[in-house]
């Protein structure tokens, strides 16, 4: 999604490996967790982030399912990158992704009907999650197999982390439990709105506020350190 100009000016744009073949380093994995976190930094794939994070179990299930599709489609796209004609690449990626989503869909149905019912249509909607298509287009289609594998795992972990950070907060506040285990005594009055739709918006907004604040504080420190704007408000 598009960001407002003042935001994109201060956040360095995600560096999408300009060198044709990236060498495998720890950064290949860690980048997805923090610097290029798909949810908090790139603001991609927001729909499942908001929709299925009302409990931490749902969040974890969704995160793992998305990671599976991300890794599977990344590996296949990377293997086929020299065979897919440029003109039909997006259509091919979507078909590959849809195949893996169908696998996950039937897989979750076989493993846990309860989770399947809770996630609902959002398992099938992984197919239109822009994180996955974005990674296929920007990374997997250009990189070798092993770097793609590690990078997709990192991205998936970052996505799962973001889902969990919403899911746990919402479940604790809205239900007083964590992974279904009650945290507070009998007297706890749940903040029900947090597990309802508005809570998703509020909690994600709060996380972004926190990150904005941290970023601004860091920038201010850097500016003071270099003495450029020592007395700026």
């Amino acid at each position: 999604m598009a960001e407002s100009p003042n935001r994109s000016a201060s956040v360095p744009p995600p560096t999408l490996a300009l060198n044709p073949q990236e060498t495998l380093t720890a950064d290949t994995f860690i980048r997805g967790l923090w610097k290029e976190n798909p949810v908090f930094v790139m603001l991609l794939g927001m729909c499942p982030v908001l929709a299925v994070t009302n409990t931490s179990i749902n969040a974890l299930g969704m995160g793992l399912a998305t990671t599976f599709v991300l890794v599977g489609s990344g590996v296949l796209v990377s293997l086929l990158r020299n065979w897919i004609p440029k003109q039909v690449r997006i259509a091919s990626y979507i078909i590959i992704i849809a195949t893996f989503v169908t696998v996950v869909d039937y897989g979750i149905q076989a493993i846990s009907l309860e989770l399947y019912a809770a996630l609902g249509a959002f398992i099938q909607l992984i197919v239109v999650n822009c994180v996955i298509l974005g990674r296929a287009e920007a990374y997997a289609s250009k990189q070798r197999l092993h770097t793609t594998l590690i990078n997709s795992l990192g991205m998936g972990a970052g996505f799962t982390l973001a889902l969990l950070s919403l899911g746990t907060v919402r479940e604790i506040l809205g239900n007083g439990t964590l992974f279904g285990v009650p945290l507070f005594g009998e007297g706890f009055q749940p903040w029900v709105i947090m597990v309802l739709p508005p809570g998703g918006f509020f909690v994600l907004g709060a996380w972004l506020l926190l990150f904005n604040w941290l970023r601004l504080r860091k920038e201010r420190k850097v500016m003071q350190g270099s003495g450029v704007a020592a007395n700026a408000g």
Binding site: E3, S4, R7, P198, F201, F202, A206, L209, N212, W213
Partner: peptide
Amino acid sequence: VSQGAAMSLMLAGLLSLAFM
């Protein structure tokens, strides 16, 4: 701190509250 996406999300939360 609240410029950009954070503000939009808070607004969306309020709208969602109203639609409830």
